[in-house]
Design a protein around this nucleic acid. Structure first.
Ligand SMILES: [Mn+2]
Ligand SMILES: [Mn+2]
Ligand SMILES: [Zn+2]
Ligand SMILES: [Zn+2]
Lengths: 138, 138
DNA sequence: AATCACATGCAACAATGTTGCAAATAATTT
DNA sequence: AAATTATTTGCAACATTGTTGCATGTGATT
C-alpha cells in the first residue's frame, strides 16, 4: 500500500520521495532479502547507484531494514519486522541462504540461541547464518 | 616453526614458496583473524596483491584457513584447527568480533548450537558471529 | 642438469563503494 | 499559493576491492 509506505517514512522523519517509496515497495513485495544489485535491476536504472547506496544506508540507520552477513561476504538487506528504531535493531532471528537459488530468508520464528561467552567478553549483537538448500530447491 | 609450515603445505599438495610460507607464518603468530589488507601490511608489500588473493583462495580450498562472515561484510580468514581438508571444513565454532579493536576471535571451545529449521530446509553450514567488547578492551 | 608443472607479477579490467557539490525536489512558513 | 528553507538527488571524480590472461620465474620431478 502506497500510504503505508509513506507512513513508515514519515514515522522515521524522512521525506517521502520517489526512490525511497519505490525501494521500500521492492522490499515489501520481495520474499527474501535484496542486495544492492537486485535493487538496481528491479528499478530499471531509474535511480542513480549513489542514491540507492544512500537510501539503503539511511534505512538501516532508521531501523527500517537490517543487514545480513553472508558467507561469501556480499551485503544483503531485509525489512525489519519488529519495532526497530534509529540505532536500535531487534532482529534477533536466524537467516538462511540457499546455496542453489541464492535466496536469503529471514526465519522470523527462529530466534538466535543464547551463547555463553568466555569471561571478559560482552555481547552486543549476534548473527546466525545457516546455508544449505531451501524449500523451493529441494 | 619453518618446518611445520612446509609440512602443512606438502600435506595439502602445495609447493613450498616464499609467499605461502610467509602468509602461513603470519596466521600462526596472529592471535586473531586476518583480512587481506592486514596481510598486505604485514608483508611490507613484498608480494603482489594478486598473489595474496590467490594464496588465500588456495588455502581456503585446501582447508588450511577458513573464512569468517562479518556484520560489516569485510572478509576475514583464520587458521583451521581441526582436521579440515579439501572441500571439507569442520570449523563449527563461534566467532567473536570486537567493536572496539576489531580483533576477530575463533572461540574454538564454543560450538555452534543446533538450529531447527522449518520443513523443507536442509542445513549444510552454520555460522555464528557475536560482536561486542573483547577481554582486552573492556 | 633437464624437464615439467605450477606459482608469481604485471597489466588491464570489473565491480563495489565513497565523497563533494550543484541542481532539483519536498517540507515548512508566510 | 508563493516563497523560503531543508533535504535529497544526480553527476563526476575518485578509492577500494577483487578478477583474469599471459609471459616469466621458481619449485618439484625425472
Ligand atoms: Mn532478517
Ligand atoms: Mn574460526
Ligand atoms: Zn533455493
Ligand atoms: Zn577488543
Amino acid at each position: 500500500m502506497k500510504n503505508e509506505i509513506a507512513e513508515i517514512l514519515k514515522r522515521s522523519q524522512l521525506s517521502v520521495t520517489g526512490s525511497r517509496t519505490k525501494i521500500l515497495e521492492l522490499f515489501q513485495e520481495a520474499n527474501g532479502a535484496l542486495a544492492h544489485a537486485d535493487i538496481e535491476k528491479r528499478t530499471d536504472d531509474s535511480y542513480d547507484r549513489v542514491t540507492i547506496y544512500r537510501t539503503l544506508q539511511t534505512f538501516v540507520e532508521k531501523g527500517i531494514i537490517h543487514t545480513i552477513p553472508t558467507a561469501d561476504n556480499s551485503v544483503r538487506y531485509a525489512l525489519c519486522k519488529d519495532e526497530c528504531s534509529t540505532g536500535h535493531h531487534h532482529d534477533n532471528h536466524v537467516h538462511f541462504i540457499c546455496d542453489d537459488c541464492g535466496t536469503t530468508y529471514c526465519l522470523d520464528n527462529i530466534t538466535v540461541p543464547e551463547i555463553t561467552l568466555p569471561k571478559g567478553f560482552t555481547q552486543k549483537r549476534a548473527d546466525v547464518i545457516v546455508s544449505g538448500i531451501c524449500k523451493n530447491c529441494e
